Simulated scan of single mutants.
Amino acid sequence: MCLGLPMTIVETDGRLAVCEYGGQQRCVSVMLLSEPPVGSKVLVSIDTAVRLLDDDEARLIAQALDALHAILNGEDYDRLFADLIDHEPQLPNHLREPVRLR
């Protein structure tokens, strides 16, 4: 299984970028993207930026990764999923059954 990290572009030449996540920097390819600017959030998998992220999506992915770390270390993780507590899960629109008219 591969995990993607939500990283922020610190500097780039259009082909490679220095990206940061959790205080660590990595050099990654940005050739799959259309020249993302410095400050952009990108999803990085195997040292390749595979898509742009908006700030909210990057935050949610980072929280999920923090929760995995907390679980593996026997720490509390509920605070990282505050938006899900006391909510019934909802299917995305494309997975819901279509309404059939009679």
Rank of each mutant, 00 (worst) to 15 (best):
A17W: 01
A17R: 02
S34L: 11
V10Q: 08
Q24R: 15
V10D: 03
Y21F: 14
V44N: 07
E11C: 06
T12I: 06
S40M: 07
I46R: 15
C19T: 15
K41F: 10
G22R: 02
M31G: 05
P36W: 03
V42P: 01
L3A: 04
R26A: 11
G4H: 07
L3P: 00
L3G: 01
C19M: 11
G14W: 13
M31F: 03
M31H: 04
C27L: 13
E20M: 10
P37Q: 06
V18W: 11
P36T: 09
M31A: 14
L33P: 15
E20V: 10
V38L: 02
V30F: 07
S45P: 00
S34T: 11
T8N: 04
G39C: 06
L5V: 06
L32K: 15
Q25P: 04
Q25H: 10
E35W: 10
P6K: 02
L33H: 08
L3K: 13
P36S: 06
I46H: 13
Y21N: 09
S29N: 12
P36R: 02
Q24P: 00
V30L: 10
L3R: 13
L5K: 04
P36L: 08
G39F: 05
E20T: 11
Q24D: 12
P37F: 03
L5F: 12
V28C: 12
G39S: 05
L33T: 12
L3C: 03
T8L: 06
G4Y: 09
I46Q: 13
D13R: 07
